[in-house]
Design a protein around this nucleic acid. Structure first.
Lengths: 338, 338
DNA sequence: CAGCGCTGAGAGAGCGCTCTCTTGACAGTG
DNA sequence: CACTGTCAAGAGAGCGCTCTCTCAGCGCTG
C-alpha cells in the first residue's frame, strides 16, 4: 500500500517492455510464456528489454487474464497443527515447497480452523486456488475429502476407511514386515511389537505388517502392546511387555519416538540392546540417532512424500491422468540396535 | 485449468451479485469491503444476494484493481529447512498462519534456494507480495536484510551484528539470567552452563545471561562448555563438565535438547536430578517433558513470536509506525529438575 | 501471376475487480 | 422558491495481463 507512494518508479509492465523492444504486448507475452512461434531475433530483443527494465510478470494480472489460479494451498487442520512439535509436518512442507519452486505455482498455507471451516472452504472453492494438499495426522479429518469434487486435492497418508481421494503414502505394512523380518533373521524368536493407535492407518498397518512377518515365520504373535506414538507411551508399553511374563528378545516399535521410550525401560532393567533385546523402529527421525545405541529403523521418506504430493497435484490440475494411490518406497536403515 | 471446463456453472462475480440485488457493481463492492456509506436496506439486500449465489471475491482481480498485493511470504532459507527436524520452524509458521487468518492476507511460503537466490528476489520484488517474513536459524542469513528497503520485512530472532531490520525475539539474556537465578536461589553454588554455538545470537545471549546472574551473585563463572544445540552435543558437554575436576551441583543448559543429552550422562554416572545436580533448560519444547524427571525450563513462546511477526508485518504494510525490536516475554516453567 | 495455405506478429477485447468522478435526491438556507 | 451543500449510488475507466482474431508477408502451386 505504501511502498509505491514513496516515490519509486512504477513497476515495469509488459507494455513497457513492448515499447522498449518495439514490438506488441502480445509478442512479449509470447516470449515470457515460451510460445515457440516467435522469431528468435525478436525474442532475443524482447529478452534484453525484459532484463533492461527488470520486468517481472504480475501474477495477479496473469491469473486474472488466464482465468487460472496460480497457487496451491496446503491445508493443515488445526488439530494437526497442535502436534506441530513433530517433524512430520515441517518435512512435508519442505518437500512440497521444493517441488513447487520449479513450477509456476505458489504455495500458500492455511491452518483450517475447526471453529469456522466455512472460511477455509470458501477460500478453496472461491476459485482462488488451483488445488489443495491436506496434511493431517488424525487421518479422521475427512472433512476435506468431499472438496475433491470441486478442486484437485491430494492427501498425505492413507485415509481411514474407503475413499476415492488421491493420496501419497508409504507401504506401512510391507515396511513393518520387512523390519520384523530383520529381527527374525537375526535369530530372535520372541518378538514383540509396540504398536501405534489403532484408529490411525499407520498404527493399524504397521502391526499388520509385523503380524504378517511373524505368521510367515511361524512365530507367536501374541506379544502386542499399544502406545500413542509418544515417547512416554513407548516406555509404558515396554514395561507391560516385560511384565507379561513372556520372554522378549526383539521388539518392533511402530515409531522411533516410542522406541526411545522403550530404550529407557530396557536400560533401567539392565537389558542390553541389542544383545538381550533387539529393537527396530520406524520413521528414521531425530530420535533414531539421538539414542544410544543408535536405532535400526525404517526410513520414512517424508520430504519425498511432500514432493510427490505436489507433483501429483500439479498433474491433476493440468488434467493429466494419475494413479489415486502412490506409495513411496521405504528402506531399512541398519544401525546398532539389532 | 480443467475444473471449469467440466460443465460447472460459472464462478459468481460481483456483476452477478449486482444484477441479482438490483444495484451497481460499485455498491456490491462497497458492501463487500464494509464501506460505511451504504444504506442498510440496500446492504442487506446485497448480502442476501451474495449468499444466494455463493459469491467469493476473486483475489487476483482484487489485487490487480487495487494495485495492492494481498499475500505475504514466509521465507525459509534452504539451510534452515535442512534442520527442519526441530519444531521451531513449524511453530513460527503456525503463529503466523493463525494471525493472518484474521486478516485479508494470504500466507505463502518459499524455500529460498541458495543456488538461485535471484528467483526468490525477483518474486519478492516483482510486486507480487506485500511483505515478507524471514525465519532462519543461521541468523547469518543476512542476504535478505537489504530487501527491507523495498518491501516490508520482519525477521525471527535478533540478527547477528548491527542491523536496522525489524525483528521479534525473546530476551534471551534476561531469560537465561532468570533461569540461572533459580538455580542460585535453590542453594547451588557450583553452577555450570552448557552453552550454544557462539555464532548464533541465542547461543551468545544465553551464556551472557548466565554470566550476568553468576556475577551478580558473586559466583565462579568458569564452568562453561559449548554444544551445538543437539542432544549428542549436550551429552558430550556434560561429560566434559563432569570430567573437569570441578564440582558441579547445577547446570543451566542453553536448550532442552542439550539438556536431555546432559540427563543421559548424569544418569549413567548415577547422579540424581535434582538432588545431586539441578538442571534448567531453555525452550520448553517436547524434550522438556519427555525426560524424567521433567525439566524445569524457560518457556520460549514460539507461536507468539510468529503471531507478533505477522502483526508487525501487517502494520508495516499498512504504513503504521512500529518498533523495530519486539521482545516477547518468557516465563520459567517449574517442573522437577531443580 | 493469381490464388492458396501457412506462419509470425499485432489489435483489441476482456478477466473481475476498485476507485474516482459524476449524478441525482433531498434537506437546509436566505 | 431558487440555490447550495451533503450524501448515497451509479458510470466507467482502468489494473496488467492472456488469448482469440485478424492480417500481412511469404513461398508454392497450377
Amino acid at each position: 500500500m505504501k511502498q509505491d507512494t514513496s516515490g519509486s518508479r512504477p513497476t515495469p509492465t509488459l507494455e513497457m517492455v513492448a515499447a522498449l523492444a518495439g514490438v506488441s504486448r502480445a509478442t512479449v507475452s509470447r516470449v515470457v510464456n515460451d510460445v515457440p512461434s516467435v522469431d528468435e531475433d525478436i525474442a532475443a530483443k524482447v529478452r534484453q528489454a525484459i532484463l533492461a527494465v527488470n520486468y517481472t510478470p504480475n501474477r495477479a494480472a496473469r491469473s486474472l487474464a488466464s482465468r487460472r489460479p496460480n497457487s496451491v494451498t496446503l491445508i493443515v487442520p488445526e488439530s494437526t497443527s497442535k502436534v506441530f512439535a513433530d517433524p512430520f509436518f515441517a518435512s512435508v512442507v519442505q518437500g512440497v515447497a521444493l517441488y513447487l519452486a520449479d513450477t509456476d505455482y505458489t504455495l500458500n498455507m492455511v491452518i483450517a480452523s475447526e471453529a469456522k471451516p466455512e472460511k477455509t472452504r470458501a477460500f478453496l472453492l472461491g476459485g482462488n486456488v488451483a488445488g489443495a494438499l491436506v496434511v493431517s495426522h488424525h487421518a479422521g479429518d475427512r472433512s476435506w475429502t468431499h472438496l475433491s469434487d470441486y478442486i484437485p486435492m491430494v492427501f498425505a497418508g492413507r485415509p481411514l476407511g474407503e475413499s476415492a481421494s488421491y493420496y501419497v503414502d508409504v507401504d506401512n505394512e510391507a515396511a513393518a514386515a520387512g523390519a520384523t523380518r530383520l529381527l527374525i533373521e537375526s535369530g530372535r524368536t520372541n518378538i514383540a511389537t509396540i504398536a501405534g493407535p489403532q484408529d490411525m492407518p499407520p498404527g493399524i498397518d504397521r502391526v499388520n505388517g509385523w503380524r504378517a512377518a511373524m505368521a510367515e515365520a511361524g512365530l507367536d504373535d501374541s506379544r502386542v502392546e499399544y502406545g500413542d506414538f509418544t515417547l512416554a507411551s513407548g516406555a509404558k508399553a515396554m514395561r507391560r511387555l516385560l511384565g507379561s511374563g513372556k520372554p522378549v528378545d526383539g521388539v518392533f516399535v511402530a515409531n522411533d519416538q516410542m522406541a526411545a521410550g522403550a530404550y529407557t525401560v530396557l536400560q533401567e532393567r539392565g537389558l542390553r540392546i541389542p544383545q538381550d533385546v533387539a529393537v527396530v523402529g520406524f520413521d528414521d527421525d531425530s530420535f533414531a540417532t539421538s539414542v544410544n545405541p543408535q536405532l535400526t529403523t525404517v526410513h520414512h521418506p517424508i520430504i519425498e512424500m511432500g514432493k510427490k504430493m505436489a507433483e501429483i497435484l500439479v498433474d491433476l490440475i493440468e488434467g493429466k491422468e494419475t494413479a489415486r494411490v502412490t506409495q513411496i518406497p521405504t528402506s531399512l536403515v541398519i544401525r546398532e540396535s539389532v
